[in-house]
Design a protein around this nucleic acid. Sequence first.
RNA 1: GGCGGCAUAGCCAAGUGGUAAGGCAGAGGUCUGCAAAACCUCCAUCCUCCGGUUCAAAUCCGGAUGCCGCCUCCA
Length: 485
Amino acid sequence: MRLYNTMGRVKQEFAPQHGNAVSMYVCGITAYDYCHIGHARSAVVFDVLVRYLRFKGYDVTFVRNFTDVDDKIIKRANELGVNSQEIAEKFIGEFYVDMDALNVLRADVEPKCTEHISEMIALTQGLIEKDHAYASPSGDVYFKVRSFADYGKLSGRNIEDLVSGARVEPGEEKRDPLDFALWKAAKPGEPSWQSPWGLGRPGWHLECSAMSEKYMALPLDIHGGGQDLAFPHHENEIAQSEAATGKEFAKFWVHNGFVQINSEKMSKSLGNFFTIRDILAKFLPETLRYFLLSMHYRSPLDFSFDALEESEKGVRRIYAALAQVDAALAATKWSKTPMPQDILDELAGYEQGFSEAFEDDLNTAAALGHLFGMVRLAGRVLDDKALRKAEAGRDLLARIRAGLAKWSGVLGVFGLEPELFLADLKACRAARAGIDAARVEALLSDRLDARKNKDFSRSDAIRDELAALRVEVKDTPQGQAWDVL
RNA sequence: GGCGGCAUAGCCAAGUGGUAAGGCAGAGGUCUGCAAAACCUCCAUCCUCCGGUUCAAAUCCGGAUGCCGCCUCCA
């Protein structure tokens, strides 16, 4: 497959360095709060990438870390009057709740910063020995940015560009404003570990270098994360790892685009902030996952509840079609009507298009377009009285169904039992609309009586009444059904 | 100020040289007591603007305008 590599900013053919094995590291969360929709996007994007690589037959080792000691965690812990480890553990637990809901698979290794302190100390010592780092009088250790000639190669910046933006915070003892902390001397009340430089804790950038190298050989095949991590986090990881080992750090750098609100970055300070839970309180997890996959992973994605409703309609349409396909496939008698070649050709085109979209930089948006083509085709066969009852029609529907089953394992959506999903969706939408199901059932019962008596004006009046409640009645061969308008 | 990205129909969106996927909304039709769902048909001669390269550009180059991100914690 072709993957966009931030290093060099080009799409390149992806191939593992060693046979079938793929090593992939993605920067995980800092566990100090509930995950927001941006975390959801990153998690889903890399989840689909891992699933797709495995689908292609690669033996993927996927490592995703947890940052469980950090300024923000300590701050939160102090606010709540508990220790930082409790905060981290709580929000790691909440992370799993959200990720399980979104059908994001666990990584193979999920290392925590606090469990790899000795590795980080060793890495820091190595950097000091190679004169890429130095300890300050009070026990901080800083990386000498100017000692690493390639600094800036990922983000496309040169040292001089960075000088104006660099600053030294009060209390820091940098020899050069560009330098960044590998190790921070302990302040009173902070979690700390013994080190050659006294009590302290690791800097954020250091963890990923130490933990990725522990679990996988360098260079990594793929290193991923959100776009904002490219600088300085990933740039610093490169500097640390390459300066320490002399090896290239990663072959492919993959960065997902941001979630925005009204074309602006979502952030707490702007107050335009949605957690995964805010959304799952109103929408099903598959709706959110589908929404996240309906745009290319590198594009900025504008979130709104209106856009989510649109995605919900798309998901519903696919599942509704699957439910109809399943119902048709339950038949037992089949005729010999042949399938027109053009339908077969069209399906083959969608199948191929779907695969090609994934091959081209994980283009899930384009792939979903082909999926709708397949669903339309299924509808065409189902609508054709002869084809619907023909062996050829059955075979075609079964082929579409099997294809979807296969791909749902990669997308992580459309894998549920259609009728169950549709029932959940209906309940979800009814709850959102504040519909009183008991009252609806009573009205439907009255309407059924009216219809039995061919009192269509009464029947239609009840339908209007239901419509006012945002309920839409459908008369199906199986009787009345309703949905949220 | 430095670095980078984006600009496609009413809305969302795919598309990096060969003549505009898909979704939502909308219009007409089939079906229906009427509807709904489903299916069929229609819905951008054109891709922010101005130049240029080419037989050929939404796609490449130059410029303009607008929006956004990073440079500070951040998915």
